[in-house]
Every structure is written in C-alpha cells, then in structure tokens.
Amino acid sequence: MSKHHVTTTINGDPTEFLCGTGETLLDALREQLGLTGSKEGCASGDCGACSVMMNGRLVCSCLVLGVEAQGAEIETIEGVAEGENLHPLQKHFLKEAALQCGICTPGFIVAAKALLERNPNPTETEARYWLAGNLCRCTGYDKIIRAVMNAAAEMRGA
C-alpha cells in the first residue's frame, strides 16, 4: 500500500508529509520534517521527551500515528521561541541550569507551557503532578520545578 499523504499545520505553518500507517508523528517530525527538537526517549509514552501539542492537548508524539495528524494543529518545541526571543520558560531553564544532558528539556518546556496556559499560577505540587509524565535522569527535578515556577511568576508579571 502506498504511503499516506498527510496535510497538517505545524507551528502555524501548513505542512505536508508522507508516512506509512505504522510510523508515528514523532517519526514524521524528526525524519520527514527535520524537526528534531522532539526527542525519542522510551517510545512507549512513559518519558515525555516527545511531548507536543495536538489540537490544544498535550500528547506524546510517539503515541500518535503520523496519519492522525491529518487536519490537526501541531505545536512543537521549535514553535516555542519567537525568532531570537526565547520563551520565559526557556530563559528560566537556562538561568536555573535546569538541564544537564538536555534530552528531556524540549518535552519539559512544551509540557510546562501547556500547564501555564491552563493555570498561570500553579502550586509547586500542581506543577510536579502535571510534569509527572516527563522524566529527567540528570537534574533531580528541583531545578526544573524552580525554573517553571519562576517562569510562571514572570509571565504573571509578578
């Protein structure tokens, strides 16, 4: 069977790609479209390194078929900064040194951005539970949580 021709919107840009049924959205992003910011950690939905937004919902792109992106609105880590201007989350991740190897970072930033869009003033507990599906094996999480809380405060204008 021939490949599926998928028409979708990624970070606001109309985009098309070809994929087989068994290929994931993550495969399509990384291998067809060169959007390698989303990472493959576990490929089973446990680590969150491949987090993207799909139609306004935070999802693991390793658990979405590429063909399911047909007609969808996808947002990836590549769409988070505005040109040269980093998002407050990105700035605070740098400032707090909330990363070491960096593999988990794109997923954390996409997931944290989704949290702050729903809840601009989360408690630390809420932030930790929201991010429970993003695993980091380097930092021990405290710096990440600090970065998220500080970014939230900055975005609220506090």
Partner: peptide
C-alpha cells in the same frame, strides 16, 4: 491513568 500526556488521548 498515565501522565498528563496520556490523559490527553
């Protein structure tokens, strides 16, 4: 069931 990401689907 699962994480925030899993809850989205």
């Amino acid at each position: 069931i699962g994480s925030t990401q899993v809850q989205g689907r």
